[in-house]
C-alpha cells in the first residue's frame, strides 16, 4: 500500500512555516548538512572559537563572502542546534506511528529499489556510496536541498540558485539515463 501523503500545497506551507519559525525562534537558517557538519565537530572545538572570533571581527570591520551577518554565536548555541538531527529521526518515527502506511520495510526504501538492487548488500553499498557523494557534494557546494533549496533560494542567494539548478539537472538527467538504460 502506498503511503497516503498530505496535499503538497499544505505540506509546502507547513515546511516553509517550520523553516521561518526556526529562524525566528533560534536565529539559525535551516540546513541539514551543515547540522551534520556541526555535530561532527568536538563539543567546543578550536574551530568553533576561531569561527566565533572571525564572525565578531567581520561584524566589526567588514564582511566577506560566506560570512553570516551579526555578532558571533556562542559555542553553546552551536552545540544546541545538533539536537535538530535526532529530532528529524523522531519526526519520521512519529509519522510512521500515526500514519496508516504499511508498505515500509526495514531493508529497502521501496519496491523499485528492491527490483533494481535485489540483494541487501547491494542496497547498502549503493546507499553508502550515494551518501558519501551527498555529504562530499553538499559540503563542497556550500549547501544541500534544505540549505540551498529552501533557505538559500528563499532568501535570494545567488550561489543557491546556481547550485539548485545544477543538482536538480544532474539528478533528473541521471534518473532519465537509469530509466532508459536499465529500466530503473
Amino acid at each position: 500500500m502506498e503511503p497516503a501523503f498530505i496535499s503538497p500545497w499544505l505540506a509546502g506551507v507547513l515546511t516553509a512555516l517550520v523553516a521561518v519559525t526556526y529562524a525566528g525562534v533560534t536565529g539559525w537558517m535551516l540546513g541539514v548538512s551543515g547540522l551534520f557538519d556541526a555535530a561532527l565537530r568536538r563539543r567546543v572545538s578550536n574551530e568553533d572559537l576561531l569561527a566565533a572570533l572571525e564572525a565578531a571581527t567581520l561584524a566589526q570591520f567588514g564582511e566577506q563572502p560566506g560570512a553570516a551577518e551579526g555578532p558571533a554565536t556562542a559555542p553553546s548555541d552551536r552545540n544546541a542546534r545538533r539536537w535538530f538531527l535526532p529530532g528529524m529521526l523522531l519526526g519520521g518515527l512519529a509519522w510512521r506511528l500515526l500514519s496508516p502506511a504499511t508498505g515500509l520495510e526495514w531493508g529497502t526504501l521501496g519496491p523499485s529499489m528492491s527490483l533494481w538492487l535485489p540483494s541487501l548488500g547491494a542496497r547498502v553499498g549503493v546507499l553508502f556510496g550515494s551518501g558519501v557523494l551527498l555529504g562530499f557534494g553538499a559540503r563542497m557546494a556550500g549547501g544541500c536541498t534544505s540549505g540551498h533549496g529552501l533557505s538559500g533560494v528563499a532568501t535570494g542567494q545567488r550561489g543557491s540558485f546556481v547550485s539548485v539548478a545544477v543538482f536538480w539537472t544532474v539528478a533528473t538527467a541521471l534518473s532519465a539515463v537509469m530509466n532508459r538504460v536499465a529500466g530503473r
Binding site: 541539514v32 548538512s33 551534520f36 528529524m88 526504501l109 521501496g110 529499489m113 549503493v126 546507499l127 556510496g129 550515494s130 551518501g131 558519501v132 557523494l133 551527498l134 555529504g135 562530499f136 557534494g137 553538499a138 559540503r139 563542497m140 557546494a141 556550500g142 544541500c144 536541498t145 534544505s146 540551498h148 546556481v162 547550485s163 539548485v164 545544477v166 543538482f167 536538480w168 539537472t169 544532474v170 539528478a171 533528473t172 541521471l174 534518473s175 537509469m178
Partner: peptide, 17 residues
C-alpha cells in the same frame, strides 16, 4: 559540488535530511 550532490541524490533518492 552541486554536480556531485546531484549524483548522490539521484542514486539514493534521498538527501541528508
Amino acid at each position: 559540488g552541486a554536480l556531485v550532490f546531484g549524483l548522490g541524490w539521484a542514486l539514493s533518492g534521498s538527501c541528508p535530511g
